[in-house]
Amino acid sequence: MGQNQAAHASSDDVSGEEEFDPIGTLTLIAIYFVILLLAWVYIYYIEFLGRDLVVVG
């Protein structure tokens, strides 16, 4: 998470167009994604399906 875009600008000439590597943003989004997955599993499978009197019709 310590890197920023400015530090990357010059060091990344191998892959031409991909000199822009917002690794911090990617990490942040990955964390959000994991939170989203865990929240969904918890809310649907544990909270919702785990409660009594599941509506079946």
Binding site: F48, R51, D52, L53, V54, V55, V56, G57
Partner: peptide, 23 residues
Amino acid sequence: VAGTNANTMVVPGEVSKITVKTD
């Protein structure tokens, strides 16, 4: 039904139908 999934609106002139399994 507090703390469960059994939950519906009750509207005059309409009949709300829900089927549940009791534990």
